[in-house]
């Protein structure tokens, strides 16, 4: 119970902190609206104008991924820059439990974008919110966000080991959108991308949310696979995080940017 309380409180704290940044909020709200508008015009111009809701939801999922990628990928570095990393690591809890709320918070703030794209689609483009399975949608969106938050811990812990993590951050946005089928169905991609997409929680998260919107398949198996893969990422991330923390303490490099 105390672990859940720690995660809950920590997530709330970091969501509040991220929500204080005008840059974060404006980027999280405005850029996804542009992407959603682009998706709407593309789907209208193409052969599938009836899939506009899918386009808006896909654009929202893309924004959640961007938020996790840039927020979680730079989570440790941001704590360093803020001068709070030492205090975080001094806390009498495993480091993964202290960083996970940060990565979860980046996924939660990504939902601003999801809500914004759906509202934008409804108000500006009159896209009816005709969700095939509202209950599954209401469950799959938070579950997908939780999954991406767990995946974020793996990003946070591995990226801190890499000297040029920012370069990887900037590179990974479009490839994950692509192979996860967030807007482009994975059936149109080359076959070799299939196995890559299959091991990414993002693929299953996007699939579960899409299935809840369109009713094109059973939501729960996709959601189950998403959460299972995310849990594997969480465990792997926790192990890497413990290793990174021990190494940084031993080498006295914790606060070195």
């Amino acid at each position: 119970m105390s672990v859940l309380r720690l995660i809950g409180r920590g997530t709330l704290l970091h969501v509040k902190q991220l929500s204080r940044s005008q840059f974060e909020i404006a980027t999280a709200l405005f850029v996804p609206l542009v992407q959603a508008t682009l998706a709407v015009y593309l789907f209208r111009a193409g052969s599938e104008p009836h899939r506009l809701l899918e386009a808006a939801v896909g654009a929202g999922m893309m924004a959640v991924w961007s938020s996790v990628l840039f927020g979680s990928g730079g989570a440790i570095q941001n704590q360093r820059w803020q001068g709070t990393l030492e205090m975080l690591m001094l806390a009498p809890r495993p480091p993964a439990l202290l960083v996970f709320p940060i990565t979860l918070a980046t996924a939660v703030t990504g939902t601003y974008a999801m809500i914004a794209t759906l509202l934008w689609g409804g108000l500006v483009y009159r896209i009816p919110l005709d969700v095939a399975d509202p209950l599954a949608f209401a469950v799959s969106v938070p579950a997908a966000i939780l999954g991406l938050g767990m995946f974020g811990l793996l990003l946070a812990s591995t990226f801190v080991l890499l000297p040029n993590a920012n370069a990887i951050n900037n590179t990974l946005e479009y490839p994950i959108w692509l192979v996860s089928g967030m807007l482009v169905p994975i059936t149109v991609l080359p076959g070799w991308t299939g196995p890559i997409g299959a091991v990414l929680p993002t693929t299953w998260a996007a699939r579960a949310v899409r299935e809840s919107v369109t009713g094109s398949g059973p939501v729960w198996p996709s959601l189950g696979v998403c959460l299972a893969l995310s849990f594997v990422c969480l465990v792997a991330g926790a192990l890497v995080m413990s290793y990174v923390e021990r190494r940084a303490r031993a080498n006295a490099t914790l606060a070195l940017a």
Binding site: E48, Y174, L178
Partner: peptide, 20 residues
């Protein structure tokens, strides 16, 4: 270099799928 290339591929595949 890599980022814009993936951007190109993303929109090319999306364009193919939608027949735009």
């Amino acid at each position: 270099l890599v980022g814009p290339l993936f951007q190109l591929l993303f929109f090319a595949f999306l364009g193919r799928q939608l027949g735009v």
